[in-house]
């Protein structure tokens, strides 16, 4: 068995509350292999950052914002969702492996949902037999 998949979570600090399950070094204690980077708003996340993370060796990237409709800054989560789906520039590059990206839209109290979805996502990553050229 290869060692645990490396997954990086780019998360809005107002979305799903991870305080208490993320240690000082940015590792999530509930989901093995997951690192967390916080943003003021998920709208700040650039598709480029996701690509960089994959280039730097991440097996997967989880983008997390608030419930669609409830962005503290009005539209940030819609923006990044549209960017991920390719409907709003800048978008992901063509060659980016989209199977390695998951976006979750979870409100502050939905920590359990975050954990279960991430674990499921990591399981699908394990099933991606041949990693495409990164």
């Amino acid at each position: 068995m290869s060692d645990a998949k490396k997954v990086i979570t780019l998360i809005c600090e107002r979305a799903c509350d991870l305080s208490g399950i993320v240690d000082d070094s940015g590792s999530c204690t509930e989901v093995p292999g997951m690192k967390v980077v916080k943003f003021p708003c998920s709208g700040m996340i650039q598709p480029l950052m996701i690509e960089n993370a994959i280039k730097a060796g991440a097996d997967g990237v989880v983008v997390t914002g608030c419930q669609i409709g409830d962005c503290y800054y009005r539209e940030g989560n819609r923006m990044i969702r549209e960017r991920l789906l390719g409907d709003r520039p800048p978008t992901l590059k063509k060659g980016t492996d989209r199977r390695r990206i998951l976006a979750l839209w979870l409100a502050k109290p939905q920590r359990q949902r975050f954990i279960s979805e991430s674990k499921e996502f990591i399981a699908t990553l394990n099933n991606l037999a041949t990693p495409e050229a990164k």
Binding site: L84, L85, K94, R98, A103, E117
Partner: peptide, 11 residues
């Protein structure tokens, strides 16, 4: 089509 999760379509 309302979701709490977006899985990107593979192109």
């Amino acid at each position: 089509d309302a979701e709490e999760k977006t899985v990107l379509p593979v192109k």
